Simulated scan of single mutants.
Amino acid sequence: MRKLIFLTILSLACNMSFAQDIWISKNATVNFFSSTVVEDIEAKSSTGASVINAKSGEVIFKVSNTSFRFAKKLMEEHFNENYMESDKFQYSEFKGKISETYDLQKDGDYQVTIAGNLSIHGVTKAYSVPATISVTKGTVSAKTAFKVKIADHGIKVPSLVFKNIAETIDVKIQANYLPKK
């Protein structure tokens, strides 16, 4: 009987330990900003999904292109129909790996680099981005900011509005993670 209780407790502990390896964010925010002398364009999505495998350092992030909201409805329409072709390329996705050491069980701020592949508009390109992972009383959050050249992802801007859209877009991502249950 003692062996059975010990094995049950050991099994539960192992499962809890494994569960703590996988961290999930279902409401990550993605902001992007384009600034030119003609106008500034900003959009935000709060529906990004992300997973961190704390054991392997692997990170996956995915956001629906149609989830971005703009100040002007017409900008949103042009973004989805003309630039992102969201009916054809529904998601933007990043798959990478954290290179530095961090501990999601220990409070602190960890400055890390995440290297991987960013797929936007059907074009995948290698990126290496700085990020901050913060752990506070069992709560895990991550944030990053980086730049994306739209030409690198095959996004074409018509010459008529070329001066309205920056060649390089500022991207900011913020995610709060919970352990997988």
Results as ranks from 00 to 15, higher is better:
S11Q: 02
F68E: 08
E85C: 08
K97F: 07
S45H: 07
V38S: 07
A19I: 09
P158L: 06
S141L: 04
K97P: 05
S64G: 10
T124C: 03
A13Y: 09
E100G: 07
E76D: 11
V129I: 15
V129G: 01
D152F: 05
S34V: 09
E76H: 10
K44R: 13
K137Q: 13
F70L: 08
E39D: 03
G154W: 09
D170S: 12
A71K: 14
I155Y: 02
A28S: 12
P158T: 11
I133V: 12
G116S: 15
A13R: 06
E58I: 12
A43P: 02
K143A: 13
L10K: 07
S50D: 04
N176C: 06
I165G: 02
G116F: 12
S141Q: 08
W23R: 03
S141R: 02
T113H: 07
N15R: 06
V38K: 11
V59D: 06
S56V: 06
T66Q: 10
G154N: 12
L12N: 09
K143F: 10
K125Y: 09
A71F: 12
A166E: 09
S17K: 05
T66S: 14
S46C: 04
F94V: 01
G108R: 03
T124Q: 04
V171L: 03
I133L: 08
P130N: 08
D170Y: 02
M1E: 14
F61W: 05
F61H: 08
S141H: 07
P158N: 10
K72D: 11
A151P: 00
S11I: 12
L4Q: 14
F94D: 01
Q111A: 08
F33D: 12
F79V: 07
A19R: 07
V51N: 11
G48T: 09
V171F: 03
M84P: 00
I98R: 02
F79H: 01
S11W: 05
D103C: 12
E39F: 03
G57H: 04
G48E: 05
S25M: 08
S46N: 12
V129E: 01
T124E: 07
S50W: 05
S56E: 09
Y91K: 04
F18K: 10
R2V: 12
T132P: 05
N15V: 15
Q20L: 08
K88F: 06
K55G: 03
T29V: 12
I133E: 02
A43H: 02
I155R: 01
K156L: 09
E58D: 15
Q20G: 13
S50K: 00
E85T: 08
K137W: 04
Y177F: 15
V112D: 00
Q111L: 01
K44S: 14
R69K: 15
V37G: 11
F61K: 03
S35L: 04
V38Q: 10
D87L: 10
V59T: 07
F18T: 14
K181I: 15
I165E: 01
Y110E: 05
C14V: 14
R69Q: 15
S35W: 00
I150Q: 11
K172D: 02
V135W: 00
S92E: 05
D103P: 06
K44C: 11
M16G: 11
D152A: 08
D103E: 06
T139H: 13
D170F: 01
A71P: 05
A28M: 06
T66N: 13
M84G: 05
I133F: 04
P158M: 08
V37K: 10
T144I: 07
